Amino acid sequence: MTPDTHDQYAPESSLNPRGEFGDVFDFIVCGSGSSGSVVAARLAEDGTASVLLLEAGGDDAAETVSNPAQWPLNLGTSRDWGFVGQPAPGLNGRRLPLSMGKGLGGGSSINVLVWARGHKGDWDHFAAEAGDDAWGYQSILGYYRRIENWQGAPDPARRGVGGPAYVAQPQVPQPVAEAMLRAASTIGIPVYDSPNGEMMEGPGGASIAELRIRDGKRESVFGSYVRPLLSQPNLTVLTDALVT
């Protein structure tokens, strides 16, 4: 697989020239979205393997990416693959947009920044279907704790601190969010301090969403996993590199 065109990504943390490894790499990861960023970082982190991370889109320097309030402005632009769904009979034949991020960070650079973990019932269902308890909720909790750098109230059984993914509750929730929680409580829906802790183990509930915002700016998965490693000579990131 070769990129059709490419520009070397030159972030604030300088990257060693591509020529240091030439055109030969131990691993080539296609796509710098949430999955690709994690894979590339895990392969490169110990410094022994040379890793090339290819991204079809451009960089993540735009204010529409970094400014959480501007996230809708990315939809339908060059930072969106622009996929659409099949015509839906229930929508009078309309095809709904299926926005997916194109650029460093992929969807985690254009989404609404919510950190939402899977429900216990979902994970246990996956485990049952796979016949493998490693997919079950109790097992997955260990991965969540490893991933998170949770900024809220301590919950050692369910939340992690010191991981790569910064997660925090909004400092000033919107008044409509507070009103919705009060309304939920009024009609008997339990209200939780966090949507990703105990609430994910019960039949339902309401809570204010947690966000991937650090110091007022979006933190994508690329920002969490890959950017801290960009100074390593064994990691090369190429943008505008469409793989065919």
Rank of each mutant, 00 (worst) to 15 (best):
A183T: 12
G162S: 00
L54M: 09
E55N: 02
L53Y: 08
T2V: 11
G93K: 02
S66F: 01
A130E: 13
G205T: 02
V24K: 13
Y192T: 09
E198A: 15
K217V: 13
L43Y: 04
A116F: 13
L52H: 14
Y9L: 15
A153T: 07
R212K: 07
Q174V: 00
L104W: 10
Q232M: 12
G160M: 05
P156F: 10
A206C: 09
A184M: 11
G152I: 01
L52V: 13
H125P: 00
P97W: 02
H125Q: 09
G118P: 14
G107Y: 08
P195K: 09
P170I: 02
G33C: 02
Y225F: 14
G136W: 01
Q86P: 03
P154S: 05
V176D: 07
H119Q: 08
D133F: 00
A168W: 06
P87N: 00
A206Y: 06
D59K: 00
N16D: 13
W150M: 01
W123Y: 14
G121Q: 10
R95M: 06
S109G: 07
E178H: 05
A153E: 13
P68N: 08
T239P: 05
Y144E: 03
P3Q: 04
I189H: 03
A56T: 09
E12W: 06
L211C: 07
N111D: 13
Y144G: 06
A134K: 07
M1I: 12
Q8C: 07
D4V: 15
I213E: 03
S108H: 11
G202R: 14
T2R: 14
